[in-house]
């Protein structure tokens, strides 16, 4: 352990899609691995990331910069970014599940951890996970819906820690 006071990082995770779930868990687990003290405040659509049974998905609709790529076939084929019109992404039933499946497969092939793995690492490295009480009330979550060890709090709980944090990010 370092003799110095550890650096602190305070994150707000406000989005729960597969793509937006990665940054807070990657940063938190890595910061903890770098001996920092880390707390993540999960609010609004970020709150479901604390659920025992994670169901993260990604939608190409409204994500115009998201490359649509295939996780199989020869390299040139995998590198093609498929131009899929909004008419298809928004109207073809099940398109979102397909896009989510393709992205998860691509991540797996490239050796990227799953959200569950990164979250487990955070717990193992003593990252404090704080669920937003107000969001729980609004969307009808109970503490039992979340993984063990989650603390519940509000804006003041986060700000008290964030006031002394060296890094503060809103994701």
């Amino acid at each position: 352990m370092s003799e110095n006071v550890p650096k602190k990082m305070a994150l707000i995770a406000s989005k729960g899609t597969l793509d937006w779930a990665y940054p807070p868990f990657i940063l938190a687990s890595t910061a903890a691995a770098m001996d920092m003290e880390v707390k993540i405040f999960f609010t609004f659509f970020g709150l479901p990331l604390l659920k025992k049974n994670l169901k993260t998905a990604v939608s190409p609709l409204g994500n115009p910069a998201m490359p649509m790529k295939m996780p199989f076939g020869p390299k040139f084929f995998q590198n093609i970014s498929w131009p899929i019109p909004n008419l298809v992404t928004s109207n073809v039933p099940g398109f979102e599940s397909v896009a989510t499946g393709l992205m998860k497969q691509t991540f797996k092939k490239k050796g990227v951890a799953t959200i569950e793995e990164l979250r487990d690492m955070c717990v193992e490295f003593d990252v404090e996970l704080i669920g937003c009480q107000m969001t729980m009330d609004v969307f009808g979550f109970e503490k039992e819906d979340f993984i063990d060890g989650v603390n519940i709090g509000g804006a003041a709980t986060f700000l008290e820690f964030a006031a002394d944090a060296d890094i503060t990010l809103f994701v």
Binding site: I26, S29, T30, A33, M34, K110, G111, V112, A113, L118, M121, F125
Partner: peptide, 13 residues
Amino acid sequence: SGLNCPLPILKTK
């Protein structure tokens, strides 16, 4: 081998 960011760092730690 085969692992991508941030796994090599997490496993090293």
